[in-house]
Structure formats: C-alpha cells, structure tokens
Amino acid sequence: MTITVTLDRTIEHLDRGPLTRDEMAQAVARDIPDGSFVNLGIGQPTQVGDHLSPDSGIVLHTENGMLGMGPAATGDDIDTDLTNAGKVPVTELPGASYFHHADSFAMMRGGHLDVCVLGAFQVSERGDLANWHTGAPDAIPAVGGAMDLAIGAKDVFVMMSLFAKDGAPKLVRKCTYPLTGLACVSRVYTEHATFLVGGSGVTVVETFGTTVDELAGRLDLELGLIGS
C-alpha cells in the first residue's frame, strides 16, 4: 500500500444510516490522491468517476487502451470506436492517449498505475481478492482484466456490499470463492464501514450507522482500530 490514512483514530458515524452506493463512490473518490493514474472497474466502481474533481489531475485508464478517459458519451458524441472496459461509449479528455493492449497491461504489471477500484465477491483479512468466478458448476468463467489489475495497481480498492444476499459476510478470514489475486487489496469500502486490509489484518477506518462492536459481532473477524 502506498496511500496513507489521514485519520488519527477510527470514527463511528452513528448519526446516520449506511452509505448509499453514491456515497460509497464519493468515499472512494475522496481517498484517491490528486494526480493519480486510476483504473475504475466495470460496474459500481465506474461511478467513482462521477465524483472526481476536474482539477484533481487524476487521469483515468481504461484497459482497452486509453489514458485520459472522459465521462460517458451521449447523443452525437457516441462513437463505437471509443468505449470503456464495459463497452460503454465514453469521451476523450484533452491530453488523452491511445495504445494497444500489451502496452495497456504493461502499465498495470509494470507498476505505473496508482490505484484501481474493483468490485468483489469476497476479500480476506490479508487482502486476498475473489471477484471473477463464483465456482458454480453452470457458471461460465470470465476473468477479463481483473487478475492483471489486482496484482498490478499499486493500491487496489474494493467497493462492495459488506454482506451477500444470503447475509454471509463478504469480508472474511479466508476466501472460499476462486481467487483473483493474493494479498493485493489495501482498502475495502462498504455501506457499513471502510476497512484497511492486509499486513496486520483488518483495521476499521470509519463506520456508518453502526459501531465497531456491532460489526465485530456480525463479522467473524478481529477488527483493529486506527490509533490503538
């Protein structure tokens, strides 16, 4: 992990409920340092782009071969030759560049990309990531660029709901789904709390509408605090 936490202690926000998806995207955007090169994964992480300030100097990378990606294209700006990794038409910003796939992934593996934001099925306390395959017998496996991003970006942030639809925690001691990468995640943003993972285990940064003790009761994990 290269990005440090600015809080000097864990904060419990008890005057409010859990974060909305949009607030989660805001929380991620707030933690991305100005001037970073950033890849936003398909789905929910794409929303983070809506909260990045134009003055931040943050440059978005899309693995299909572009730096300086702008917002989604609408109307006459739609160009079928210009899409993001989710195949959604996008726009280019001044200073953008195009490159082929081998260069695009060299940017990840070579340690040039500062942050990527991904969704996940599970994250383990040491930062293992499972986000590509449920392992279900009838599922068609599809990995895309997830494994390359997971081990390539200097910091990997995960945005996910803290619990699966069946109530099972998604932040776990050990992933049970097939892995995407080992010890690669540094932060996990959920509706109930944000966490640091890896190294010495799970540290709670902030909670939203719940206490650390309540979370500890719902997660089968030891939760550390900042500044303790």
């Binding site: 693995e63 082929h100 081998a102 992934f105 593996r109 496996p141 895309g144 390359d148």
Partner: peptide, 13 residues
Amino acid sequence: LEVVPQGNLAERM
C-alpha cells in the same frame, strides 16, 4: 473454452 487473463492474452501474443 480456455479463459486467459486479458493482459496475459495480450502478452502471450
């Protein structure tokens, strides 16, 4: 089907 991480697909070629 052989599933290959996207960067490996590019780099192998």
